[in-house]
């Protein structure tokens, strides 16, 4: 069942992105920035975690999850170490994704050239 909901929710988030491309004529950069902010706000009001519990990777893989993770880091640190946590905690959770993307991209640039 989890696989089905992952497919449906993940797909639905992508459909929202496609509608932003096609109907609102947004560039990919504008679309992604908007989705990240939406993800951050949804986690801010506490709805992202239930979504992850329900849809698993269907909610964690789309870019909205990046907004969720940034907020999650900030709020967890806020709870632990007070107001400074809002700043110090933002990147706590997302390190794996951002670091992996930087490292793999850099290594790829060392060895391959664009194909066109």
């Amino acid at each position: 069942m989890q696989f089905l909901w992952a497919f449906v929710i993940g797909g639905a988030i992508c459909v929202i992105g496609q509608l932003m491309f096609d109907l609102f004529k947004l560039t990919p950069a504008h679309t992604m920035a908007t989705l990240v902010v939406i993800g951050a706000i949804i986690d801010g009001i506490g709805w992202y975690e239930p979504l992850v519990a329900f849809a698993g990777a269907g909610a964690t893989v789309p870019i909205t999850s990046f907004g969720n993770a940034l907020v999650h880091g900030a709020l967890t640190e806020l709870e632990k170490s007070g107001w400074i946590g809002v700043i110090s905690g933002i990147f706590k959770v997302t390190s794996a994704g951002v670091s992996a993307a930087i490292i793999f991209s850099f290594l790829a640039a060392l060895v391959v050239r664009p194909k066109g």
Binding site: C14, Q18, T31, M32, P62, T64, F66, G97, A108, A109
Partner: peptide, 20 residues
């Protein structure tokens, strides 16, 4: 379309393509 842009793979693609 958005099926490859919205997941985290799209984020990585945007970084890797620019790097290459």
């Amino acid at each position: 379309g958005a099926g490859t842009a919205v997941p985290v793979t799209g984020f990585a693609n945007s970084m890797c393509s620019a790097a290459l």
